[in-house]
Design a protein around this nucleic acid. Structure first.
Lengths: 214, 214
DNA sequence: GTCTATACTTGGATAGAC
DNA sequence: GTCTATCCAAGTATAGAC
């Protein structure tokens, strides 16, 4: 680490306050991405939200992009934990879709998906940012694939639709739903799609039950 | 029209050159949106591409946003004509998916979908732009719905999945696929999904054929 | 209509005081 | 570590010459 980042040799109180500022900046960056998008997430705007000087963005993170990546990391890891929990607990496909619906709609409202979409599209305007965002998207693609494998595993659809492709479609669908929802503020359409997915999941569960009997 | 747009009282040659510049700006705006995204589509960058002065952006269109909307209109109407043609000619669902696959992948490569995605996400950073982009997206949602109605109309899936919801999912899916493709340059994944859709379409056609026999 | 020149704003990033 | 002050680049938009 040859970066001009914060030194660790301060007193305990000072180090704590420094960590507070760092955390406040990350939180503020998330809020800025969510409410004003990538273009609105400037060092000045973020520092204003965090209640500190704009210079601290560069002291703590080196650049605005690196702060935004830290913000993406924060959202991503927190939400990933929630989704992993639901995946482990779901016994049936219906239950899986059911809790996915609940968490995803909550994320839609909380703006977590928006943060991801903004980072993906905003990456175009900053050289070298694309691959770093892709890195952070990778765990989600893997997660979607294991979820798809679990959902399709025993059903007759498994050979009709490989889990890798299903996962790609699901991730793309989530991103696209967020784009449409953020354009016209319509979250009802996404909700209706989840209800439909739930009905289809019931069919899958039924088919899976039949398969086990044969 | 009280706007400061171009006057129509010039000689024929002058009016023609003016129209040329206007068209060149629209073309340049499309290229800028496609290659450098919304953030890179500044008046300076666009004028540079068009080979004219940056001031002409404001003379002809009043603002950068209005030029970008004109660019979106151009792409949207041109591509809509192509898609409508294929919808009218397709006799079977398989044929429908087949030509949709061809045109959409061509659009992906040509950057037409990218222009739309950039305008949707970029709309967040310009007050009042969102509804105007939504207006231009509406025809695509309608188109997707008639296509879905035609594809599902005679199949057993029609009651399982209303065409309005299918259309919403398809539009979201297209937008999401473009985002993923533009992030890692992977168009193969989108291609694989279309191949899969084609296989499913064959099943639908078969089911529809059976339905007609009964 | 088209150009050059310019006013004004905002943003990334750094310097130096404390 | 945090601040204020500042530099520089890039953007929108307008004024005025041609």
């Amino acid at each position: 680490m040859a970066k001009p980042g914060p030194r660790q040799a301060a007193g305990t109180a000072a180090r704590e306050r420094s960590a507070d500022v760092r955390a406040a900046l990350v939180t503020a960056a998330i809020g800025a991405l969510r409410e004003t998008g990538f273009a609105g997430a400037s060092a000045r705007a973020i520092a204003g939200r965090a209640g500190c000087s704009q210079a601290l963005v560069f002291y703590h993170f080196g650049s605005v992009s690196d702060l935004l990546l830290a913000a993406l990391d924060e959202v991503s890891t927190l939400r990933m934990a929630a989704y992993r929990g639901l995946l482990d607990e779901a016994e049936s496909v219906t239950a899986l879709v059911d809790s996915a619906r609940e968490i995803f709609l909550a994320d839609l409202d909380a703006g977590h998906v928006r943060v991801l979409v903004e980072m993906i599209t905003g990456a175009h305007s900053v050289p070298g940012l694309g691959p770093q965002v892709a890195e952070r998207l990778a765990p989600w693609r893997e997660f979607a694939e294991t979820a798809a494998r679990r959902a399709l595993g025993r059903s007759p659809l498994a050979r009709l639709l490989p889990s890798a492709e299903a996962a790609h479609a699901v991730v793309a669908g989530f991103l696209g739903l967020e784009m449409l929802a953020s354009l016209d503020g319509d979250r009802v359409a996404a909700l209706a799609l989840f209800d439909r997915a739930r009905a289809l999941a019931r069919l899958l569960d039924a088919a899976s039950g039949l398969g086990r009997l044969l």
